[in-house]
Amino acid sequence: MPPLSEMNWDVLLAELPILVGSVVVVAEVLFGVMSFGFFLGLGLATMEVYGGVFSNCAAFIQRFFRAIPPIVLLLLVFYLPFDIPPLLVAILGLGLCSAAYQSQIFRAAIQSVRTGEIVAARALGMTKLQAVLHIVLPQALRRAIGPWTNEFASEIKDTSLIYVVGIPELLRRARYIIAYTRGNALLMYAIVAVIYFILTRFGTSFLYWLEGRLWVPGFERRGQVRASTGAVPR
């Protein structure tokens, strides 16, 4: 490592694109985490509401993954005795955690649809599955977008943990630069924080825009559904 004077702006500027480039990795992981969490979460929520005997089982799974810190989940998946590519480890580790949170959101959204609607659908000759698929979920999912957006933002922030499974994300790359330029720690961490802030802001406003687009006139909106605990989204 060549010696450098402190606050070498040229070096810092040359390194910055590499830092910003890791946003792509973050986006890949995020896409995977949210999709995995969506399908598993929706499955768990449906099971919890309509699953009869499996309802408790779904509730248990959901509580289990909510109680374990995401970093521990990531490491547990990483050390599973299979050769899983790092990207997939990150997606599974954070995805399990996200699925637990998303299932809570979907459960509340499903329960917000009046039971009368299912009765009415059944009266029209639909099966229970048809009623859930065509009547309940289209309404529930629209209502879930608001809280789902918060979960999305919280997963953006949790991508800062994925270096533990061998993916050099923003924070790790910032640490490369700090090591190479011997200092500027506060400045680099501030830059990372600002990038994350922009990401969460940009991501959430996009989803709120989407919510507006998907809104059916006359349909009750966001604020109607909140996770049953009333928690401030993390």
Binding site: M1, E15, Y176
Partner: peptide, 10 residues
């Protein structure tokens, strides 16, 4: 872990 392995400009 210099001088064995480190990262410089990516």
């Amino acid at each position: 872990f210099p001088p064995w392995t480190w990262v410089e400009r990516g």
